[in-house]
């Protein structure tokens, strides 16, 4: 119980940092989705782009998140903005990949049937491809959200706030209650996001495709 003392000593600080954490996450996921979705749809239409994008995406995975954050500093300074850029760079990948896979794994016969029946390509996209890919796209968004919550803890290092601040300060000051006040809400937040978006994923799965 000793470990939890920070929570009732400084609840308003924990809540403020939690708020910052959520803001970082939501803004980053929102921007990522807005860029990644159209982009992913584009690469399902242009095969040579797919190859290029997937290669670049895999390469980008090898750069540590910490380094991406750090390297945003010389370009954008410290604070909220560079942190958002770094988070967006990390969060786009799962959305792009899942959207791409979700659409390209649709049975080609379904698409051909649609074309053969006289659906226009935007009708096929909106009435067939997107609804069928929706569960997979949502799984990508879930992934992106969990990743953002995780990388946002590191954002404290470049002055963007968030719950990571308590973890870093807790380590530096050898203050375990402070450490826990950062770690526990972060972990719960990630788990909660995972579960809630997972639920949403199920509700959005078209009825005919539920197991």
């Amino acid at each position: 119980m000793e470990l939890l003392s920070f929570f009732y000593q400084q609840p308003e600080l924990v809540i403020k940092l939690l708020g910052e954490h959520l803001l970082l996450t939501f803004v980053a996921v929102g921007i990522s989705a807005a860029i990644a979705l159209p982009f992913a749809i584009l690469i399902t239409r242009v095969p040579w782009l797919t190859f290029l994008v997937m290669g670049a995406a895999n390469l980008s995975q090898t750069i540590p998140s910490l380094a991406i954050l750090g390297l945003c500093i010389p370009l954008l300074g410290i604070g909220f903005k560079p942190a958002i850029v770094a988070l967006v760079l990390r969060a786009m990948l799962p959305i792009v990949i899942n959207t791409y896979v979700g659409i390209s794994e649709i049975d080609p016969a379904v698409i051909e049937a649609g074309r053969g029946m006289g659906m226009r390509s935007w009708q096929i996209l909106t009435a067939v491809e997107l609804p069928l890919a929706l569960p997979v796209i949502m799984a990508g968004l879930r992934n992106a959200t969990v990743i953002c919550i995780s990388v946002a803890t590191l954002a404290a290092l470049i002055g963007a706030g968030g719950l990571g601040e308590l973890i870093f300060r807790g380590v530096a000051m050898v203050d375990q209650p402070m450490l826990m006040a950062g770690a526990i809400p972060t972990a719960l937040l990630a788990i909660l996001a995972d579960v809630l978006i997972g639920r949403l994923e199920l509700t959005l799965t078209p009825q005919g495709m539920r197991q």
Binding site: A109, V110, E112, A113, V128
Partner: peptide, 30 residues
Amino acid sequence: PVELRRRIGYVIQQIGLFPHMTVGENVALV
């Protein structure tokens, strides 16, 4: 081509029913 196809029925071996639509919705699509 789109108008043409809407005037011509098309059946393929792989069937290609839309899995997220009911049987009734599939038939009523065109």
